[in-house]
Design a protein around this nucleic acid. Structure first.
Lengths: 173, 173
DNA sequence: GAAATATGAATGAACG
DNA sequence: CGTTCATTCATATTTC
């Protein structure tokens, strides 16, 4: 049995109208709207559904980051072994996924989704680690295998001579 | 002129203990600790996981910068009384992502006598839960001569939980 | 239903 | 110090 608080506000899902507007603005050129712009956009989009400035900001950030990452993948990169699962070429091809059947998302508060799919939530209240399945970088940091002369502490380590941030001013003196 | 930007190194992830300590220090009212404090804090946090002074510095900078965007003024420009389905009753609900395994130096022949008794083993208490007692010489980096009080958080002694911030702090704008 | 994918959100690090 | 980038995590959505 479940159905505890399950609080956690579900993440904002842009309505088609909002998305359309966002895409249009994004297409207009500026990839990083200023705060004022964000506010303006947010206010505008508020007409079509609940939205916050942070949502807009995040959206632009994600959009930009995502668009940039897809672009340089055209050349040969995949040589062997690892398979690049992320192979979506929607750089200049605006291929927004559109449900062909149901898309009736009333603008307003589409805060549905309270009922999670199932007990697939790998995060009990007592659990600290979320999902070790998708952990990636930590493996590299692991110490359990391949104790090579990895100088990973050379930069992040706590060396006494930490002049790595030489270009940085004396942080807060 | 340089171009070295974290050559693929995984970014540091604070352990709960480290985070807790950092938050506490931050709550004490110091905006940006001095270099000396940074060193001190780093040394302290090193007991709980790999960390560098740069990390501490960055953390404070980010923290401060992000805490700034919370409550601009007394007049709430956001009278958007949308349907907030959730009440703020997530005091005991930890929502932050949990760090995975922390690395330690391979115990080959690199033994520095910093009291690394068995620090080469990922202690669960560092990764997950830990005793409610604060570790150690944190008092020495307690309140110092910089009563920066720009934040609104200061419920010391009231709440046992340290998760004072939500996810809606700001969007790093 | 579970896996795969899409994408919003969080945050450490870098830049100006 | 403010802002932006890059990476990752979490969750919604789609697919098998």
């Amino acid at each position: 049995t479940f159905g505890h608080k399950m609080t956690g506000r579900q993440r904002w899902t842009p309505t088609p109208l909002q998305l359309q507007t966002l895409e249009r603005i994004f297409d207009q050129g500026i990839g990083t709207p200023s705060k004022q712009k964000i506010k303006d956009i947010t206010e505008e989009l508020s007409q079509h559904g609940q939205i916050a400035e942070q949502n807009v900001y995040n959206w632009f950030q994600n959009r930009r980051a995502r668009s940039k990452r897809k672009q340089p993948g055209g050349s040969s990169k995949n040589n062997n072994g690892e398979s690049e699962v992320e192979t979506e070429t929607e750089t200049l091809n605006e291929k927004r996924k559109m449900p062909e059947s149901l898309l009736v998302l009333p603008d307003g508060n589409n805060n549905n989704g309270i009922g999670t799919t199932s007990a697939t939530s790998p995060r009990p209240e007592d659990l600290c680690f979320q999902s070790p399945e998708m952990s990636s970088d930590l493996h590299l940091l692991g110490v359990l295998s391949n104790p090579r002369d990895e100088d990973l502490v050379g930069k992040m380590g706590l060396s006494e001579s930490y002049n790595l941030y030489d270009h940085v001013e004396d942080y807060g003196m």
